[in-house]
């Protein structure tokens, strides 16, 4: 109940804040949409010369990219703003006190503290576009595949959040490393292409140690090809494992926090 109250206040604050900065909101929405256009142009240039990329056709590759985009945007709506501020300001300025003294989970509270609802505007374009692209792939999508995909996409979004937390946790020790907030953005470069383009070593690392490839590739593979139980189980297991790691690291980092003197 108290979480619901907090969320309601945060949503109201976010709406009031965004209403006052229409220029920022419009520019962010445009740059996000523009990135989609740039990437589609690049894919068109590539697929003018090849029929498939590591066995994936144009529409499948675009779908994979949109899958990445949707997960990043969804995280942007809910948690990205709070985590960015954590990496840039909260520990350095001592503002983390505000979150630490409340009788709620501080990791969750910080994460949801700065929602960016304007990302929903972009999602309203990218989600229907993803559905249209999936239908254009020429692959007969079974109902079970779609259900398995939705199940895995749900865990993907949560896994992306936990990995985002892990990337900013060092801020408890390295208070002036603003670039930590950019680490996950760079990881999205890896998530947007079929896993087949990478070497075996890269695949092993990004499917297990820091599983950003699993976030987009496994759900998309499940949608287009046969459902593999081991993929479903793996997705659930790594989400819980990285959730546990993220929480543990956060708690360890928190012990190192000494207000503005950090």
């Amino acid at each position: 109940m108290r979480y619901w109250k907090i969320i309601k206040i945060i949503i109201r604050n976010s709406y009031t804040r965004d209403k006052k900065i229409p220029g920022v909101v419009t520019a962010n929405v445009f740059s996000s949409l523009f990135e989609v256009i740039i990437t589609l142009t690049m894919f068109s240039a590539i697929f003018n010369n090849v029929e498939s990329l590591s066995g994936w056709n144009y529409y499948q590759v675009v779908f994979l990219y949109l899958m990445m985009k949707n997960i990043v945007l969804l995280n942007g709506v809910v948690v990205r703003g709070g985590l960015n501020d954590m990496a840039k300001e909260y520990v350095r300025m001592g503002d983390y006190d505000f979150y630490l003294v409340k009788p709620v989970n501080s990791m969750l509270f910080v994460s949801v503290s700065k929602p960016r609802f304007y990302n929903i505007v972009v999602l309203m374009f990218t989600i229907p576009f993803s559905i249209w692209i999936a239908m254009k792939t020429g692959i007969d999508l079974g109902a079970l595949n779609i259900l398995a995909f939705i199940f895995m996409a749900f865990f993907s979004a949560i896994l992306y959040y936990f990995l985002s937390v892990i990337t900013i946790v060092p801020t408890f020790w390295l208070v002036r490393l603003f670039s930590l907030s950019d680490l996950m953005n760079r990881a999205t470069q890896i998530m947007r292409y079929p896993a087949g383009i990478y070497s075996m070593l890269v695949k092993v690392i990004f499917f297990t140690a820091f599983p950003v490839l699993a976030i987009t590739y496994l759900p998309s593979w499940t949608l287009f090809y046969s459902i593999k139980a081991e993929y479903l189980v793996y997705m659930v297991v790594i989400t819980f494992v990285f959730g546990w790691i993220a929480t543990k690291l956060w708690n360890i980092g928190e012990r190192n926090y000494g207000s503005a003197s950090s």
Partner: peptide, 16 residues
């Protein structure tokens, strides 16, 4: 972290 873009580009274009 900005070197990621370069290595991903190599992987992508090598595959192309």
């Amino acid at each position: 972290i900005n070197t990621v873009f370069f290595y991903v580009a190599i992987a992508l274009w090598s595959a192309v």
